[in-house]
Simulated scan of single mutants.
Amino acid sequence: MNANTLISINEQKQLVAKTISMPASYLDDYHQHPWHQVIFPVSGLLQSEIDNRRVVVPHNALLYIPAGTQHKSVAFTRTEFAALYLNPTSKVTFCHAPKSCLVTPFFKELVLLLLKKADAPDNNATSNLLHVLNDQITAAANYEIPLLKPKDRRTLAIFEGLIDQPATRLTLAQWAQQVGASERTLSRLFTKEFNQSFRAWRQHLRLVLSLELLTTTRSIQDIALSLGFASDAAYISAFKALFVNTPHTYRNGVLQAKTVYSL
């Protein structure tokens, strides 16, 4: 059922929820909801655009979108996420600005509990939990992983090539020959769109791609080498710098969330 239809037939409730699955490369183009929305990834990779800001939402983050805010999302890989819709006329006054939040273990359990509560009748316990949710969104650290997918056709060709073969070691000069642009032009495009060098952007992309691989049983070393890292130590260090946690901690969090989510 469409989210806005679900909202319209439950307009007296404080909270409704649904799970959303997207195949790889699926684009959910610009739209809005009359209620606030919380997006919590369960698996896969999602890049969302809100108010001209584009962010990647991994498993240890969630995205809060106020009611009436235009947004769109694209799935890098097959993606599943839980969506909470929060009635803006309820007893809880939620934030007025979108926010990508770092999710603590308590925050995660709260969201998963509300996901279960969504099918139950409204009561004071639900109101109390929603007050706590708003407090958590307000207090949470901002956690924005910048966009990865380029708009220019030449840099987009590099993006698509690395999605298919992330371990490729082609230099920017070699990519320039393939996509029909000078190395200087490509360098300028990466700086303009991502405020990063090509090498930094490529590592960023590889790290984000590793999130999906961490949902499998492949070893950390195998994942690191398959993505083009020199060693598992180099991968672990880079992963922790971007995602706060180690790959092992992240993997355990994914597996735990999937277990609780499926109950």
Rank of each mutant, 00 (worst) to 15 (best):
Val38Trp: 04
Gln70Ala: 13
Asn124Thr: 12
Asn195Ser: 03
Gly68Val: 01
Cys101Leu: 02
Lys117Gly: 09
Gly68Ile: 03
Arg188Gly: 04
Phe76Gln: 10
Ile50Thr: 04
Lys72Ala: 14
Thr259Pro: 02
Lys91Trp: 06
Ala257His: 13
Lys18Arg: 15
Arg218Pro: 01
Arg188Ser: 11
Asn87Gly: 10
Leu242Thr: 09
Phe94Ala: 08
Phe159Lys: 06
Arg169Phe: 13
Pro146Tyr: 08
Leu211Gly: 03
Phe198Asn: 00
Asp122Trp: 05
Thr5Glu: 14
His248Gln: 15
Lys151Gly: 15
Ala233Cys: 05
Trp35Phe: 07
Gln256Gly: 01
Thr89Ser: 14
Ala176Phe: 00
Asn123Ser: 01
Ile9Ala: 13
Val74Ser: 12
Ile9Arg: 15
Ser100Tyr: 10
Phe94Arg: 03
Arg202Cys: 09
Asp29Phe: 11
Gly161Trp: 00
Asp122Pro: 05
Asn128Met: 13
Arg206Ile: 01
Ala173Ser: 15
Asp51Cys: 02
Asp152Gly: 04
Leu113Tyr: 14
Pro98Glu: 13
Tyr26Gln: 14
Gly180Pro: 02
Pro146Trp: 08
Leu112Ala: 07
Glu144Arg: 01
Arg154Trp: 12
Lys116Tyr: 13
Pro105Tyr: 00
Leu147Tyr: 13
His36Arg: 02
Glu212Asp: 14
Leu156Met: 08
Lys151Tyr: 14
Ala83Glu: 15
Gln37Pro: 07
Ala181Val: 00
Ser226Tyr: 06
Glu144Trp: 04
Ser197Trp: 03
Asp119Ile: 13
Ser210Asn: 06
Asn124Asp: 15
Leu225Ile: 14
Thr89Leu: 04
Arg199Ile: 13
Ala24Tyr: 02
Lys192His: 13
Trp201Thr: 06
Phe107Asp: 01
Phe229Trp: 06
Arg153Met: 09
Val260Arg: 08
Leu113Lys: 14
Ala157His: 03
Pro88Cys: 04
His36Glu: 01
Ala75Asn: 00
Gln178Cys: 02
Arg78Gly: 07
Glu109Gln: 10
Leu147His: 14
Asp232Thr: 12
Thr89His: 15
Asn2His: 14
Pro105Val: 00
Pro166Arg: 09
Thr217Phe: 08
His36Ala: 11
Arg153Gly: 02
Thr168Ser: 12
Ala238Ser: 02
Leu162Cys: 05
Ala167Gly: 09
Pro98Cys: 10
Thr19Met: 12
Val254Ser: 07
Pro121Trp: 07
Val260Gly: 08
Ser219Thr: 08
Asp51Ile: 07
Asn128Pro: 00
Asn134Phe: 05
Ala139Trp: 06
Asp51Ala: 14
Ser231Gly: 01
Asn142Gly: 00
Gln256Ala: 12
Asn10Gly: 06
Ile158Gly: 04
Pro98Thr: 09
Arg251Ala: 00
Gln70Cys: 10
Gln203Ala: 00
Thr168Glu: 06
Lys91His: 15
Gln12Tyr: 11
Leu62Ile: 01
Val132Thr: 14
Met22Asn: 10
His131Gln: 11
Arg206Pro: 00
Leu62Arg: 11
Pro146Cys: 02
His71Phe: 11
Gly68Trp: 07
Asp122Gly: 03
Asp222Asn: 12
Asp28Trp: 10
Val260Tyr: 06
Ser100Trp: 05
Phe106Ile: 09
Asp119Gly: 11
His31Ala: 04
Val55Trp: 01
Pro150Phe: 03
Ile50Lys: 04
Gln32Thr: 10
Thr185Gly: 09
Phe194Pro: 03
Ser90His: 05
His96Cys: 03
Gln70Ser: 15
Phe243Glu: 10
Lys108Ile: 06
